[in-house]
Design a protein around this nucleic acid. Structure first.
Lengths: 199, 199
DNA sequence: GTCTATACCCAGATAGAC
DNA sequence: GTCTATCTGGGTATAGAC
């Protein structure tokens, strides 16, 4: 219920973001959005051309937010391994899943190039960012030189996205954590030159 | 269009399986099922109590099939690493995603213990099966003894499920393949006692 | 068993009053 | 800008004829 904040159009966007996260695109009706935003039909069609237009605005904002969050962790302090570790271990509302990744299971989103674009671009950007960190780690001797940065990045991102699937299937975040620990164990720097176990 | 095969109830189930895979539970209407099955309203409500009942039957069958497919590969010939490799590299219609995993993004499936149960059980079973293979590999010295079978299994399954997400976001199977190759590189047997590069 | 008819509410959008 | 009709079609289910 965003009834008490800022402009009507803002409340519509934020309500849509929530509902897209909770129920996806096909599962979200204009009516549900309006109820949550505390607005009437007219407001929505005044500010937006329709459901796809409003959803596009909401998706773009969510995508941008996710990108910024990932960037903050991946550009943070620490060795490459530590930054990837921080990305994987970052606090998440695991059972809610990824607000961007879940859209890939939405037939109407995938069918619309416009709606899919922000999803695609965001995931690609994060992937490239992680790949860069891995390459950096290779130069520092923290990762084996035969590893491919882009492939490891894909595995890291996939573990996160797939972790959500396992967790939601089981109704518990435990499976997500297990997958992350498994990947970190495999990724753990072998060259004892740079330790990931300080103190 | 299952109009030409077996019984009406069978056509209803198969049509539902297809639509659940393509569009998920909230995106699948009884009407669409009936059209694809070439049946009328009456047939559906004669054989099933309603949409949830029919969906449950369809989900159970899909789940059982997936379990059998995974079992066939994981119980196949080869070393533990080779069997996990075979599982990861097995032919998949990547852009269609996982017919079981996709259901975890469906709010109505997650909200219904009955519908979620087969999804949960199937994923848990495959996970345990993979964990067993990893433990076997540890005993053979193919995997490092400090690895946790259950965690590696979660990472393997998550890489597959997440790989679908990356691929669908990009509109190309390449990202799935990259993630799998990345994981296999990390998983690659280090102890040269057992080689994964024959010939 | 299968069909059509009917019901009722919701999805998505438009029109026009305030 | 926002509201309340109003509209057309679809989602989901029931009733009852064949």
């Amino acid at each position: 219920m965003y009834s008490e904040c800022v402009s009507t159009s803002e409340r519509l966007i934020e309500s849509t973001r929530e509902l897209l996260w909770e129920r996806g695109y096909v599962g979200t009706s204009p009516k549900a959005i309006l109820e949550r935003a505390g607005a009437g039909q007219g407001s929505m069609y005044h500010h937006f051309k329709g459901k796809p237009d409003l959803a596009l605005t909401a998706i773009r904002r969510t995508a941008e937010e996710l990108r910024a969050t990932a960037e903050a962790v991946l550009a943070g302090p620490g060795t490459p391994y530590e930054r990837i570790e921080a990305y994987l271990l970052r606090e998440r509302d695991v059972l809610r899943g990824c607000p961007v990744g879940r859209l890939t299971m939405d037939p109407d989103v995938i069918a619309s190039p416009e709606l899919r674009a922000p999803v695609d671009e965001t995931i690609a950007a994060v992937r490239e960012r992680i790949a860069g960190v891995v390459e950096e780690g290779k130069r520092l001797g923290q990762f084996a030189p035969e590893l491919d940065g882009a492939e490891i990045a894909a595995a890291v991102l996939a573990t996160v996205q797939g972790g959500y699937v396992l967790a939601r299937a089981a109704g518990s975040p435990a499976a997500f954590d297990a997958g992350v620990r498994g990947l970190l164990a495999l990724l753990s720097p072998r060259t004892p030159g740079v330790s990931d176990q300080p103190a």
